[in-house]
Design a protein around this nucleic acid. Structure first.
Lengths: 257, 257
DNA sequence: TCCCCTGTTTCATTATTTGAACCATCGGTG
DNA sequence: CACCGATGGTTCAAATAATGAAACAGGGGA
């Protein structure tokens, strides 16, 4: 593993933790030496990616991340395009609706509207959803190239519940079915008691960039509900895709002048 | 320079450029070898910090940055605290008002409301303001420890205009005056024709975290205006500071369990 | 007072990074 | 259509930077 990934791993740990982390603890979590950890942190801090609380000496995410996040949002306004659609689906269905974006091998939750019902599905912001075991993952794979699907199949299949697909054949079947259906269905494949339907959002060139999904307690699931919500999420995702696709959000690559 | 900083430098270049950059161009801009640049980019891409457009092969900022930016904003909601204050100042004065946050040795613009007037000051989002040559910088230094001010004095003083302070004595005088006055004044010290007043925003422990500033064309500047706007920005910054300070936005560092 | 936990520094060892040279591919052009 | 000049991508020995054990420093609590 390269040095850069190690440093970024520290950032990931800081993101995962709800509070600042001390040097020793961070080193232990990351599995690096104290000295190494410190050197990486100092370098990250010099660039604003991390900051050290003067009092507690703990390290936390730094301001540069906000700047960069903002910069990307400006050029690739996925959130702006998705949020109204998610809200609309939430109102139509009364269930928890969320959007994800593909990021470094999995889908990360970027926006959620929770159901108002007492028994509802809750999703943490930034939570990572595996491609092989969630409705969002199925939908994303179904919209991806075969080469990408194969590369995912070659990974290890972590098993979460009895209905998690455990081998590539099972996953390929699901992807096939999703492609025919136009939306994906997860029957508690990631978490017991949670079922979802999802559809992919495509960016320029038709490549999938993320997903929209409706998640509900398995107790409220019936075939009719699945069909109805599935169609809803499929149409909604298609509309968002059309918007993204239409107004060329990513500018074409220009050659050096 | 460590490897990590090199990689982060690439990200900075991508942020600065408005469009995706090709490998060769990026390598040239960064001053690295093509092979090195590519290796760094691949590592960044594997972590979602950068993404490569499949078609153009150009590299751009990746989705992970948005996630991380969001995560930090949740734990340190500086923007949420500042935005209403900036808007309010903008309405009161009719001039361009902006907020900055300290990031990696300078102040980065995080939020701006532009004046409605035809002759107005424009500020790019994310623009970096040097500590030694802007009203925001003066205000930040005035709120900082002497040790920090000294460390800034030891840096090279880049000169932008005839009124840019060129040595540490001039800067120290300004800092002293700012501390007495309660707000800072820049008379075209960074850009010709632009004058500003600013005040620091303090976080937990009283440490400055950023600034608020009112910027106007020098043509509209009079001593009375400076006094009036200076007082306004001072009070407004104090209110934001009180909010930040009061409700402990950064959780205290907890020791390992 | 002592002890333990944390942060910090050092430096020889080691593994990673580096970059010149190379290949492959594309698009324009005589 | 072969050539040229771009580009992105790859390789591997040499050089450099990262590593981590160990030792030091400092602070807080028992």
């Amino acid at each position: 593993m390269g040095t850069v990934s190690k440093a970024l791993g520290l950032i990931e740990l800081l993101r995962g933790s709800g509070h600042p982390l001390g040097l020793t603890e961070l080193a232990r979590l990351a599995g690096f030496d104290k000295a190494t950890t410190r050197r990486l942190l100092l370098e990250l801090a010099a660039n604003g990616y991390v900051e050290q609380d003067g009092e507690s000496r703990g390290y936390a995410l730094g301001p540069a991340l906000q700047m960069l996040g903002r910069a990307r949002e400006n050029r690739f306004p996925l959130n702006r395009a998705i949020q109204p659609a998610v809200r609309s689906l939430s109102e139509l269905t009364g269930e928890t609706v969320h959007a994800t974006e593909y990021c470094a091998g999995s889908l990360a939750s970027i926006f959620t509207v929770e159901s108002g019902k007492a028994n509802r599905v809750i999703l943490e912001h930034g939570q990572k959803l595996p491609l092989h075991a969630t409705a969002s993952g199925y939908a994303f794979l179904a919209a991806s190239s075969d080469a990408f699907v194969e590369s995912v199949c070659r990974r290890q299949f972590e098993v979460y519940t009895p209905t998690t697909p455990t081998d590539s054949n099972a996953l390929l079947d699901i992807v096939r079915a999703t492609r025919e259906r136009g939306y994906s269905i997860s029957n508690q494949s990631m978490e017991e008691g949670v079922s979802s339907v999802a559809a992919a959002i495509r960016g320029v060139g038709g490549k999938p960039v993320g997903t929209m999904a409706i998640a509900m307690p398995a107790s409220r699931v019936t075939p009719d509900v699945i069909r109805e919500y599935g169609e809803l999420v499929r149409q909604s995702a298609a509309q968002v895709s059309a918007r993204l696709f239409g107004k060329s959000t990513v500018q074409p690559f220009r050659k050096a002048s």
